[in-house]
Design a protein around this nucleic acid. Structure first.
Length: 612
RNA sequence: GGACCGGUAGCUCAGUUGGAUAGAGCAUCAGCCUUCUAAGCUGAGGGUCAUUGGUUCGAAUCCAAUCCGGUUCACCA
């Protein structure tokens, strides 16, 4: 991969920090570090681009903020004339204006560089586990948040120089799967997805629903017959049959295995379609049917190390009361391993297979406790990867009416919502009538790009940690802080760039951007300046998103870029700029904006169209 | 009850890790298409940052207490 040009130079914030440390050290003959002061972007109401906050220096220097600011400002400009041109001090804030030549250079070097903001490979490996579906029902809105998050975090890590392995653990066995299987045996009469023309995962999901209906019915019947609720739930024939089926499965009974494989294959066929539609992909699949026996060795080791202890009934436990948690079972009295143990086994397997430096789990916040325990046990067992386990916990997706409940039919199905979004994209596009010359294929692609883009952006723009409300009406609004607004600005720039092509060549002069010497402070108008300052921050934002594992940082940033561009576009003409120099400058700004929008949206898994 | 998470405009969310007069979008109201794509732009109104106290030059941000909401504490996964 090509090394991004900007790496040759530090970002302006880093330059300013470094120069300030040097100037302070020279001026006051003490040692300083970057932590002794703060650098912020200057607020729009003041003159300048970046600001050094001086308050923290007052105490150690025993000087007033004004004195420090004047000395520092003067020294910074004298010693870095190519970077800083002027300063002013308001209260304790030293506002510095960055030389236009610096911004020109940023533009020239990066306006078409697809690697801008991305880092060189750092030799470290990260695994991101996400999606993790159950094979008894189709994906819903909550899974979409998980998929989009996991995929995006993986891309953000790649952009930050990591070797990333996307993995997925499929929960393909257990009592919930048997429920669908039993219901199919009872009610299907041999029906298949093919015979009913139903997508496989939806087909199997229908039988899961049928199971629950029948189970409820049987429980009620038993209660009317005089049983208690507990008894009824245990004795319902359909539940007993399901439990027997799980035993048959674990014993590898041929008929059961066949049915299991058949129904799972239907589900996988359905999942494949959904994953392809939403753009999820994985480098490594794990199946619980293969991993559920993992952990026995770990239990033995744990007993030897006295991390675990065995009860009289032969069950194995870990006591975490000293860590403020509870006692936790790690192996049943019949010798089978529980969820926790399997997870530790899988964690170790991941490490052994890939020697990963970090293992990220994208799992809902309901499992915060489980993941905390998992990590704690791994640490107590002194597994080599214990400290590298990280739970990327995200909040549930709720509807304005409250939580999604399958019983009340308020679960938003993944395929349905994607289709709905495409339909809305189509309606809005047709209303505007701007792409009447598109072929049918081009239109299909466009509706997909816009509809899915809107959905992804909507789910990714919120801090993952927080639970979010999915308001269907708001999500189909394509105005304001939305994916389509950003896509629109990209398309608009591309339109301008296409029109600037003369005789097959872009009218962007391929050589140097001209700098108007002698009056450099007048080169950038406020909105142009605002745009280039924001564009230069892209590398910082990617870094931040990676550190926090937070795609919303990218979403907010890209929206901000689009918004600044939109204001700029309305205020100043690009094609009919006042001078040829201005036109060149604005074409470059537009091109770099489009480049950053495309790149940033790419990190979110959102495509941007050339026209819309 | 214990642990963890959250409470910012009517609604949905930001808030650069303690800095300047707390910001966006939606919704409401008023303007702007003969001009590079109006899925747009400009402006207005809208706030006791849950409450109280503390820390200091300075608090939505840190600490303590209180109130409200959520998750979780299975020989389920």
């Amino acid at each position: 991969m090509q090394i991004a040009n900007y790496l040759c130079r530090m970002l302006i914030v880093e330059q300013l920090q470094k120069s300030t440390v040097e100037s302070l050290t020279a001026l006051f003959s003490q040692t300083f570090t970057e932590k002794d002061f703060q650098v912020n972007q200057t607020k729009p109401e003041f003159e300048g681009d970046y600001t050094v906050v001086l308050f923290s220096l007052v105490k150690s220097l025993k000087l007033s903020p004004g004195d420090i600011g004047n000395k520092l400002g003067k020294h910074l400009i004298e010693n870095n004339p190519s970077l800083f041109t002027q300063y002013n001090i308001i209260k304790g804030f030293l506002n510095l204006t960055v030389a236009d030549a610096y911004w020109m250079e940023v533009l020239q070097k990066n306006y078409t560089d697809v690697c801008f903001g991305k880092k060189q490979m750092n030799g470290k490996k990260v695994m991101v586990e996400y999606s993790s579906p159950n094979t008894n029902k189709p994906l819903h809105l909550g899974h979409l948040r998980n998929n989009f998050l996991g995929w995006s975090v993986a891309e953000i890590f790649k952009a930050s120089g990591y070797d990333v392995i996307k993995s997925c653990i499929v929960n393909d066995r257990g009592i919930h799967i048997c429920k669908s299987m039993i219901a199919w045996q009872l009610f299907a009469n041999g029906a298949t997805p093919q015979s009913t023309n139903t997508k496989g995962d939806h087909f199997v999901g229908e039988y899961y629903v049928k199971f629950n209906d029948e189970y409820k019915k049987q429980v009620e019947e038993l209660i009317t017959a005089g049983k208690t609720k507990d008894e009824a739930e245990k004795e319902a024939p359909i539940m007993k049959a399901t439990q027997q089926m799980l035993l048959d499965w674990e014993a590898g009974k041929p008929g059961t295995m066949e049915l299991w494989q058949k129904m799972n294959s239907w589900v996988y066929a359905g999942f494949d379609i959904t994953y392809k539609t939403i753009g999820s992909d994985f480098d490594k699949m794990y199946y619980e049917s293969n991993t559920y026996l993992l952990g026995k060795k770990i239990v033995e080791e744990g007993l030897q190390k006295s991390v675990f202890n065995k009860e009289a009934d032969n069950s194995v436990w870990i006591d975490l009361t000293e860590d403020g948690l509870d006692k936790k079972i790690v192996q049943r009295k019949d010798g089978t391993s529980v969820y926790m143990t399997q997870d530790i086994g899988l964690a170790q397997q991941k490490y052994e297979e890939y020697k990963i430096d970090q293992s990220i789990y994208v799992i809902g916040d309901e499992q915060n406790y489980h993941m905390k325990v998992l990590k704690l046990i791994a640490e107590k067992l002194q597994l080599p990867n214990a400290k590298n386990i990280y739970h990327l916990s995200y909040g549930m997706v709720e509807l304005p009416t409250g939580k999604m409940k399958s019983r009340e039919g308020t679960v938003v199905d993944a395929d349905d919502i994607v289709d709905e979004m495409k339909k809305v994209a189509q309606e809005k596009t047709e209303e505007l009538g701007k792409v009447k010359d598109f072929t049918v294929d081009e239109l299909t692609t466009l509706y997909h790009t816009i509809g899915l883009g809107a959905l992804k952006f909507f789910l990714l723009r919120v801090d993952p940690k927080k639970k979010m409300i999915f308001n269907p009406e708001e999500s189909i609004d394509f105005h304001g802080f939305t994916g389509p607004f950003i896509q629109f600005n990209h398309a608009r720039i591309k339109s301008i760039l296409r029109k600037s092509i003369v005789n097959g060549e872009s009218s962007i002069v391929s050589g140097e951007l001209s700098v108007i010497s002698g009056q450099s402070s007048a080169v950038f108008l406020p909105l142009e300046k605002e745009l280039i300052v924001a564009l230069e921050q892209f590398p910082t934002i990617i870094q931040q998103a990676c550190d926090e594992m937070n795609p919303s940082a990218i979403a907010i940033y890209v929206y901000n870029i689009a918004k600044i561009f939109s204001s700029f576009y309305n205020e100043h003409s690009i094609a009919n700029a006042e001078t040829e120099d201005k036109k060149q400058l604005r074409l470059h700004l537009a091109a770099m904006t489009a480049n950053v929008i495309k790149s940033g949206m790419g990190l979110l898994g959102v495509e941007v169209p050339e026209r819309m």
